[in-house]
Design a binder for these strands. Structure first.
Lengths: 85, 85
DNA sequence: ATGTAGACTTGAGTCGACC
DNA sequence: GGGTCGACTCAAGTCTACA
């Protein structure tokens, strides 16, 4: 049953996504449209209820005008920070 | 039905993953063990048949001793290159 | 414009097996 | 050690609807 240590990744990614979206004054609906996904899915991502695949990540990055790698980097940094608590 | 433009992301990521694994002289089995996933799943990832979620990405990065963001960056760069063909 | 939720289809990720 | 596959479970992602 591996990966108990990665349990919070979705929550952290949700925070990151919401922050990037807010900074750009995009609505969930507009982001969803640009990224080619459903609005309710964005809502679930931001709340950490769902997790993106790498394809979705690239779509979100393109929609936000930021490399997907940057979203992952921010998520990873926050995750490492919380992991060492 | 969005995202036809992202169709090849899985293939590209598979190439990237295999390259990073090979450079570290890791077997699929060892990588799978370290990342906490199944060996056959690594095989499918490398062949582009399956795609990782962000949680799996962080696990793979940790297993390879490289930031997951770097794997995404490499994937994204290759994807942009192929996209402009 | 967002939260939430149920019901749905497809795909992530496992397990066992064989080449 | 790796490829491949079928069958399985559960989660990704959609769609509709209401607060």
């Amino acid at each position: 049953m591996a990966n108990t240590q990665f349990t919070n990744v979705g929550i952290i990614f949700g925070d990151v996504l919401r922050r990037y979206r807010s900074e750009r004054n995009l609505s969930q609906e507009e982001l969803a449209h640009r990224a080619g996904v459903d609005r309710t899915f964005i809502s679930r991502l931001e709340r950490g209820i769902r997790q993106p695949t790498i394809t979705t990540l690239l779509g979100l990055g393109a929609a936000l005008g930021v490399p997907a790698a940057e979203l992952v980097k921010a998520t990873e940094a926050e995750w490492l920070k919380r992991a060492e608590g």
